[in-house]
C-alpha cells in the first residue's frame, strides 16, 4: 500500500545532541533515520514500531524506521523526522529565488519495505 503524506523534518533534542557528538557516528544516523507517524496511519498501513518504510519524493527516496505517535500529537497524514541525510535525500533543490530549499514540507509517498 502506498500513501501520499506530508513529511515535516525538524529539530529534536536527540538530533541536536547526537549532532555535536559527530555526524559520522551511529547515534546521529539512527536518530535522523527514525520517522514518527500517526498511530492510526500506521495501523492502516499495517506498520508497527521499528518497521522499515520507504519514503519517496519527486527527487529521491530513502528507507527509514518508523515509530508511532498518538493521534493527538501528530495529525494523520503527517510524518515527522529529525533533519539529516535521509531528509536531505528527499529535498528538491529549487529555492524559488530565496536560497532556501523547501525543507520542512515535502510530499512523500510512503510504503512499507
Amino acid at each position: 500500500m502506498v500513501e501520499t503524506m506530508i513529511l515535516v523534518p525538524g529539530r529534536s533534542q536527540k538530533q541536536g545532541t547526537s549532532l555535536v557528538a559527530g555526524k559520522l557516528k551511529d547515534e546521529y544516523k539512527r536518530v535522523t533515520s527514525t520517522a514518527e507517524l500517526n498511530e492510526k496511519d500506521m495501523r492502516r498501513l499495517k506498520l508497527k514500531d521499528g518497521d522499515k518504510i520507504r519514503l519517496k519524493s519527486d527527487v529521491g527516496q530513502t528507507v527509514v524506521t518508523c515509530i508511532a505517535k498518538k493521534d493527538a500529537d501528530l495529525p494523520s497524514g503527517m510524518i515527522f523526522i529529525p533533519y539529516g541525510p535521509p531528509s536531505s535525500e528527499l529535498m528538491a533543490h529549487d529555492t524559488a529565488g530565496s536560497g532556501m530549499p523547501l525543507s520542512k514540507h515535502m510530499e512523500v509517498k510512503v510504503s512499507k519495505v
Partner: peptide, 12 residues
C-alpha cells in the same frame, strides 16, 4: 557547516 549532509541531493 555540513552542506554535504543537509543540502538537496543535486547540490551534494
Amino acid at each position: 557547516s555540513d552542506p554535504a549532509s543537509n543540502f538537496p541531493k543535486k547540490a551534494i
